[in-house]
Simulated assay, not measured.
Amino acid sequence: MKLGDRIRSLREKEGLTQKALAQKLAIPHQNLSNYERNFRQPDYETLQKVADYYAVTTDFLLGRSKQPSQDVSIAFYDGPSYEDEDEKEFIEQQLQQYRKMKQRFKDQMNKS
């Protein structure tokens, strides 16, 4: 999966239009369209904006990692121990939701 495909997938999972995401990222809609169609590559600043908005790593966006995010403190200690895969998946989903909520709150505070 290419960078543009990952961006589009994340956007669609959240139910956003290209125009809405472009506004949230403060980039032109046409640029986002070109990224998603893999016609152009975002610059570093824009790549970081996308990663921050979705609380994923740039490595995930670039296809260098299958893990959307990685908590350095957990990774340093070989990660947490889970009872089973269901528990691991549940915890990771909850963490993703928390990070998105935290980012949205931060974005709202910056607008005020």
Results as ranks from 00 to 15, higher is better:
Arg64Val: 05
Pro42Leu: 03
Leu62Ile: 10
Gln67Asp: 05
Val56Tyr: 10
Ala75Pro: 14
Arg37Met: 02
Phe60Pro: 07
Ala20Cys: 07
Ala20Ile: 06
Lys2Trp: 07
Asp59Met: 07
Tyr77Gln: 14
Tyr35Leu: 02
Arg6Phe: 05
Leu21Glu: 06
Pro28Cys: 10
Gln41Lys: 15
Ile74Cys: 01
Lys24Ser: 06
Ser33Met: 06
Tyr54Ala: 12
Gln70Cys: 13
Asn31Tyr: 10
Glu36Trp: 06
Val56His: 01
Gly15Pro: 05
Lys19Ala: 08
Lys2Cys: 10
Gln23Pro: 04
Leu21Gln: 00
Gln48Leu: 12
Arg40Leu: 10
Pro28Arg: 13
Phe76Lys: 05
Ala20Leu: 01
Val72Thr: 13
Gly63Glu: 09
Tyr44Val: 14
Lys13Ile: 03
Arg11Thr: 00
Thr58Gly: 05
Glu12Ala: 01
Ala51Arg: 07
Asp59Trp: 15
Leu16Trp: 13
Pro28Gly: 11
Leu47Arg: 12
Asp59Phe: 14
Asp43Ser: 07
Asp52Ala: 15
Lys49Pro: 07
Phe60Ile: 06
Gln30Trp: 05
Arg40Gly: 04
Val56Ser: 08
Gly63Phe: 06
Thr17Ser: 15
Lys66Cys: 08
Phe39Ile: 13
Ser73Gly: 02
Tyr77Phe: 14
Asp43Val: 05
Lys66Ser: 14
Tyr35Ile: 01
Ser33His: 07
Val56Ile: 12
Val56Phe: 06
Ser65Val: 07
Ser65Thr: 05
Lys2Gln: 15
Asp52Ile: 00
Tyr35Ala: 00
Glu45His: 11
Phe39Asn: 10
Ala51Glu: 02
Glu45Gln: 12
Thr17Arg: 09
Asn31Leu: 12
Leu10Tyr: 05
Gly4Tyr: 13
Asp59Lys: 13
Thr17Glu: 07
Phe60Lys: 11
His29Ser: 08
Phe60Trp: 14
Val50Arg: 09
Gln48Trp: 13
Tyr35Asn: 02
Gln18Asp: 12
Leu62Gly: 13
Gln67Gly: 02
Ser73His: 13
Gln48Asp: 05
Tyr53Ile: 02
Ile74Asp: 11
Thr46Met: 00
Arg11Ile: 03
Arg11Pro: 04
Gly4Cys: 10
Glu45Tyr: 04
Glu45Leu: 08
Gln48Arg: 14
Ala22Leu: 02
Leu16Lys: 11
Leu32His: 06
Ile74Glu: 12
Ala55Lys: 03
Leu21Ala: 06
Leu16Ala: 07
Asn38Trp: 10
Gly15Ile: 01
Arg37Asn: 12
Gln30Glu: 03
Ser33Arg: 09
Phe39Ser: 07
Leu61Glu: 03
Lys13His: 09
Pro28Glu: 08
Leu32Ala: 01
Gln48Met: 13
Arg8Trp: 05
Asn34Tyr: 11
Gln67Phe: 04
Ser73Asn: 10
Pro42Lys: 01
Pro28Asn: 12
Gln18Glu: 03
Ala51Trp: 14
Tyr35Trp: 08
Ile27Gln: 05
Gly63Val: 10
Gln18Arg: 15
Arg37Val: 01
Glu45Ala: 11
Gly4Trp: 02
Ile7Leu: 08
Ala75Tyr: 13
Tyr35Cys: 02
Ile74Ala: 11
Gln23Thr: 09
Tyr77Thr: 15
Glu12Cys: 03
Gln23Trp: 02
Gln23Cys: 03
Lys66Arg: 14
Leu47Thr: 03
Ala55Asp: 08
